[in-house]
């Protein structure tokens, strides 16, 4: 019964991985024709390239900042949305909205909204009297990268909040009631009941978000193409440029594999850490199984 799904996954995902590994060991022409093996030359070239290290470093910042930011925002938001208050339905719908627009379109809209002289963000800030002169948001790398990270966080919030909401609504009420009786305060309930019980959901959110964010191209590509002066390049945008602008398919394949390796190592490491921590705490196996799956 698992065979059909296995076959499709093998075909669509397995084959290209092998193709990629094969390509990364060869000299590849500008247009992808294989020109014979050259061992690890492609990898050597990648590791000798300062732009690679810059992009790698920025990828780490990007991933940690976006995933971290999304988690920090989503958990309190989910807790509020899980509670009863007037207009909760509306609030839920609004928080989920960014999910309904494609990332590409979100990025296009933001690029326009952040436009220096015609952008509506500057319009709002100027109307409110916060700034007198328009700010060119995307002109320098630090500002542009910060904006991109914030947008990254924004679009990651719905998915993360959904996972947390799912988790929160499955928490046993009796634990809270017992805690109330014991006189535990808000923070105590959060620290000793909510957080431990939410752990598996937080773990899932971390693993899935890291994978998605690490590989995410559209926001940065549409807004700045990794510029100015490569100051917002992360590995995917650099990879895209190498492959499709410069036609360095061998080097691009090598970077693809390195990226895959990084993610793979991260996930394995994370799953092991989580499982170990849970065994120590004596939490049931099932929880880790859901992370693993």
């Amino acid at each position: 019964m698992i065979l059909p799904s296995l076959l499709l996954a093998m075909f669509i995902i397995g084959y290209p991985i092998i193709d990629l590994a094969w390509t990364s060991l060869q000299q590849v022409s500008r247009f992808g024709q294989l020109r014979g093996f050259n061992g690890f030359d492609n990898f050597a070239e990648v590791f000798g390239d300062p732009l690679f290290y810059d992009s790698l470093w920025r990828t780490l910042i990007w991933t940690v900042a976006v995933v971290g930011g999304a988690l920090l925002i989503s958990l309190p938001v989910a807790m509020m949305l899980n509670d009863e208050f007037f207009g909760r339905g509306v609030a839920r719908v609004i928080i989920m909205l960014p999910w309904a627009i494609s990332l590409t379109m979100t990025a296009v809209v933001w690029r326009w909204g952040l436009n220096g002289r015609a952008g509506l963000l500057n319009a709002s800030l100027m109307d409110l009297g916060i700034i007198a002169e328009p700010i060119e948001w995307l002109a320098t790398a630090p500002l542009a990268f910060t904006a991109e990270i914030l947008i990254g966080i924004l679009v990651s919030v719905p998915f993360t909040t959904t996972i947390f909401l799912g988790g929160l609504s499955s928490l046993p009420q009796d634990a809270y009631e017992a805690a109330m009786v014991d006189g535990a305060g808000w923070w105590g309930r959060f620290r000793y009941i909510t957080l431990p019980l939410m752990k598996p959901f937080i773990n899932i959110a971390i693993v899935l978000n890291v994978i998605y964010v690490f590989n995410s191209l559209p926001i940065i590509w549409v807004m700045t193409e990794g510029g100015p002066a490569n100051g917002t390049d992360i590995l995917v945008t650099y990879l895209y440029k190498l492959a499709f602008r410069f036609g360095q398919l061998g080097k691009a394949s090598a970077i693809s594999l390195i990226m895959f390796g990084v993610l793979f190592a991260f996930t394995i490491l994370y799953v092991i850490l989580v499982m170990r921590a849970e065994k120590e705490e004596g939490v049931k196996e099932e929880v880790s199984a859901s992370v693993e799956g």
Binding site: G32, G247, L249
Partner: peptide, 11 residues
């Protein structure tokens, strides 16, 4: 365009 032609030729 260049990306398109690159993938086309590669493929």
């Amino acid at each position: 365009l260049l990306q398109r032609l690159t993938t086309d030729i590669a493929g």
